[in-house]
């Protein structure tokens, strides 16, 4: 097996982030957490990650989308795979009906909705890392 993969979670809900982290740690990933977009970006700048798990509603509104867009615009980050974990539909349901829209800002990303099933989470994480590595090799 290759070396241990390093992941970052940016999510404002400490309990939820902690829950996801423990699932991932059990599966032998190395996991960092940030609880607001500012700290999250700082972590991205500082360390090298194999995957980002990103929440949508944080701080002032859908700031997760801001981050995804910023990553997509930056050559340094464009290839970082992103798993967007959102409950935006639930959170904003009172504003709009309809499902969450997949923003597609970076090369490899996916969207899953909270609450997240552990098995599904692990499948998606490893699939995303694999497909991004495959892309890089090309």
């Amino acid at each position: 097996m290759s070396e241990q993969k390093q992941l970052l979670i940016i999510d404002d809900d400490p309990d939820f982030a902690e829950g996801i982290k423990s699932i991932l740690v059990k599966a032998k990933y190395k996991v960092d957490m940030a609880h607001n977009p500012k700290d999250g970006w700082a972590a991205l700048e500082k360390n090298k990650y194999d995957l980002l798990l990103l929440d949508v509603m944080m701080g002032r509104g859908a700031e997760g989308i801001m981050i995804a867009r910023k990553l997509g615009k930056d050559a340094k980050f464009r290839e970082l795979p992103v798993l967007i974990i959102t409950s935006i539909r639930e959170q904003m349901a009172f504003l709009f009906p309809g499902g969450a829209v997949h923003p597609n800002f970076v090369d490899v990303d996916e969207l899953i909705e909270k609450p997240v099933e552990p098995k599904l989470l692990l499948d998606k994480v490893s699939a995303l890392i694999k497909s991004s590595e495959a892309k890089k090799k090309k």
């Binding site: 859908a62 935006i88 309809g98 969450a100 923003p103």
Partner: peptide
Amino acid sequence: IKRIIPIGD
């Protein structure tokens, strides 16, 4: 608005 709140129809 949809670019700010990414929710579909």
